[in-house]
Design a protein around this nucleic acid. Structure first.
Lengths: 172, 172
DNA sequence: ATGTATGCAAACCATTTGCAATGAC
DNA sequence: GTCATTGCAAATGGTTTGCATACAT
């Protein structure tokens, strides 16, 4: 069932890409379709290194240069979205058939989690932006994740009990 | 009047920074305060090159290494916010006393505009994020700005009239 | 046949790092 | 006096670029 959905999705996406390539008079090379297909074969975020390595393992290896070229096209036609959370590498994510979601980024460990918001982007706000044609938006919420919070609390407890001991000793 | 406000703001910010430095047992060097002061002397976005060059022109020159060191501290204590819109350089922005706003980023010309939203971040949503302690958030809205939209429309009109002429000629 | 797209390797450039000298504590 | 911080210069590494070759049109 899900399998079938994904095949359908891939077809739709391929068509959209073809339309884009035609309209802009770009060539329809096998590399470009292979990359698109590969990106739409997995969910979640990826970076160029991920993509390069995982494609190398398939029968279709493409150069890094082509990867960068093609991702540029995919960004331009809106099939892929680019993120730059604090780290040095850019992260990418497929955009078609991908529900809009925010990103929770932990400032401590750097982990990025998706968070499906309700309908954050209220139509009334779109009105105010008449003079700006919105393609998409990204919401990044920075903070401390539960795991790091717990670790931090532990740490503080330790420090406090240590401080108490010291002041206790001093009093003596 | 505004002058005075800014002086007050700078004082508050300096105090907050001092508290942070004390708490983390970092040294209170003149460079660090000079950088903080400089950042809070101007509004809007800046990148490291901007900052470096504009500080070079004042009596207080600091090295790039120190700039990067200090900005790290300022990010950590929340006095500065970092943005990575599509370009290769990171953009920074002072965070204290700076109303929360979204960023409209033009995919065509790369211009970044601020957009003061209402209260986008509704308390009810915070509830759902109990397990994540929010420090701040960034909303990036990508699209085409009014200037580029107009340019694009013009272009398309031109192309169409040209196409018409050609098909007209062919018919003949 | 033409010229765009690919792959490779070199170049680029923002950021990071190593280390000697400085100065905050 | 001690050791964190500064400044300089070199290193790093993701991304871009130049160019010869391949191949979509």
């Amino acid at each position: 069932m899900k399998q079938i959905d994904n095949i359908k999705l891939k077809e739709q996406v391929r068509e959209e890409f073809t339309a884009y390539l035609n309209h802009h008079k770009h060539r329809k090379t096998p590399e470009r379709y292979a990359i698109l297909d590969h990106i739409y074969s997995t969910k979640g975020h990826f970076d160029m290194d991920n993509l390069y390595n995982s494609m190398k393992q398939t029968h279709f290896r493409v150069s890094r240069a082509t990867l960068y070229n093609t991702i540029e096209l995919l960004l331009d036609c809106g099939l892929v979205v680019k993120h730059q959370f604090g780290a040095n590498v850019s992260q990418y994510e497929r955009a078609y058939g991908n529900e809009n979601h925010d990103h929770l980024i932990c400032l401590s460990c750097g982990e990025v989690k998706e968070y499906k918001n309700g309908n954050l982007f209220i139509p009334s706000q779109q009105k105010k932006l008449q003079r700006f044609k919105i393609s998409y938006y990204s919401m990044y919420i920075y903070g401390i994740c539960s795991k790091c919070l717990r670790a931090k609390n532990k740490e503080e407890k330790k420090t406090k009990s240590l401080e108490n001991k010291i002041s206790h000793t001093k009093k003596k």
